[in-house]
C-alpha cells in the first residue's frame, strides 16, 4: 500500500509537467493579451513596451523556462486583470466550487442509489418504467434550463429559496439540485444496469437457493459488487464538476472556479488560466488516486502491484 502510494506520487510529477507545457502553449497561441490590456488609443510603441515588460517579446521556450522556474517556487505570476498573484485568486474560489460539487454529488448519490436498486430489483414494473423515464428526462434537461425553472418554481412562485448568490445553506439548494439531478439521472441508469447484470450471476442464485432473504441477497451480495463501477463514475463526475459547473455558476451567480476560468480565458489572463488548470489537474489526480484506493478496498481481487 505504501509502496503503491509512492509509485502513484512519482507518476504525478511527469503528468503535471506535461500539463504545464500544454497549457502554456495553448494559452500563448490563442492571442495577444497586450491588445486587451491597453486602451484602444495605445500606440504600437506602448504595446511593444508592455510586451517587453511582461516578457512576451522573448521566444516561447524561454518564456516557458522562466515560467516553470517560478512555478517550482510556487509563483504562478500576477493576474493581468486583477493585478494580484494568480494562485491565491484561484485558491480563494476553490471552497465555493468544492461546496457546490460536493453537495451536488451527495444529492446525486442519495437519489441514484435507491432509485437504481429499486429499478433493478423491480425490473419491468411500472416503478421501473417511471424511474427510467425520469432519469432519461433528468439527463436530457440542460442545466441552464433546469436552473432557471428551479428558480421560477422554488424562488419566484413558492418563495422557498433565495434566487442566487452564495451565502447560507439555503443558497446552495437550487444550484446543487440543478447539477445533482443530472448526476442522479446518469448514476441511476448505471446502477440499474450493473445491478441487473449482477442479479443474474451464479453466486446470487446460489445465495438465493440457500434460503437467504432477498434483502440480504440484494443488500449484501449484489450491492457491494454493483457499487464498483459507480465509484469510478462518481470520481470522474466529481473531477469534471471542479472545473465544469460554469453554466450553473452563471445562472446562480455562484462565484466559483468556472466563472474565474472563463473570465480569465476571455481576458487572456495567462497567469490565472495556468494556475487554475494546474490546480484543477492536481485535484483530478488526487481524486483518481483516492478512487484507486477505494476501488481496491471494494474489490479485493485487485492487487497493489
Amino acid at each position: 500500500m505504501g509502496q503503491y502510494l509512492v509509485r502513484m506520487l512519482l507518476q504525478v510529477v511527469p503528468v503535471m509537467f506535461l500539463i504545464s507545457i500544454i497549457v502554456f502553449v495553448l494559452v500563448h497561441v490563442t492571442g495577444d493579451p497586450v491588445n486587451l490590456m491597453l486602451p484602444e488609443t495605445a500606440t504600437e510603441e506602448d504595446r511593444e513596451i508592455l510586451r517587453a515588460a511582461l516578457g512576451l517579446d522573448q521566444p516561447l521556450y524561454q518564456q516557458y523556462f522562466v515560467y516553470i522556474k517560478n512555478v517550482l517556487q510556487g509563483d504562478f505570476g500576477n493576474s493581468f486583470h486583477y493585478g494580484e498573484p494568480a494562485l491565491p485568486l484561484v485558491l480563494e474560489r476553490l471552497p465555493a466550487t468544492f461546496e457546490l460539487a460536493a453537495v451536488a454529488m451527495l444529492i446525486g448519490i442519495v437519489i441514484a442509489v435507491p432509485c437504481g436498486m429499486i429499478s433493478a430489483v423491480k425490473r419491468n414494473t411500472v416503478l421501473d418504467v417511471i424511474i427510467s423515464f425520469l432519469s432519461v428526462i433528468g439527463k436530457a434537461m440542460p442545466n441552464f434550463w433546469m436552473g432557471i425553472m428551479l428558480i421560477l418554481l422554488f424562488s419566484v412562485s413558492l418563495g422557498l429559496f433565495p434566487v442566487s448568490g452564495r451565502g447560507g445553506v439555503e443558497h446552495i439548494v437550487l444550484p446543487a439540485f440543478t447539477i445533482g439531478i443530472g448526476l442522479a439521472a446518469q448514476m441511476t441508469r448505471l446502477i440499474r444496469s450493473n445491478m441487473l447484470e449482477i442479479l443474474s450471476q451464479d453466486y446470487i442464485r446460489t445465495a438465493r437457493s440457500k434460503g437467504l432473504r432477498e434483502v440480504l441477497v440484494v443488500g449484501r451480495h449484489a450491492f457491494r459488487n454493483g457499487l464498483i463501477p459507480v465509484v469510478t463514475i462518481m470520481s470522474l463526475q466529481f473531477t469534471s464538476l471542479i472545473g465544469g459547473t460554469l453554466v450553473t455558476e452563471t445562472v446562480f451567480a455562484w462565484p466559483g472556479l468556472g466563472q474565474l476560468l472563463v473570465t480569465s480565458v476571455n481576458m487572456r489572463d495567462m497567469a490565472v488560466v495556468q494556475a487554475a488548470v494546474f490546480i484543477i489537474a492536481l485535484v483530478v489526480i488526487v481524486c483518481n488516486m483516492l478512487t484507486d484506493v477505494v476501488y481496491r478496498y471494494l474489490d479485493p481481487r485487485i492487487k497493489y502491484n
Partner: peptide, 16 residues
C-alpha cells in the same frame, strides 16, 4: 454581480 438576465429579473421579482 449576476451575469444571467433571467436570474436578475427573478431576484428583482422576489425582492432579493
Amino acid at each position: 454581480m449576476i451575469p444571467e438576465a433571467a436570474t436578475r429579473v427573478s431576484e428583482l421579482l422576489t425582492g432579493g
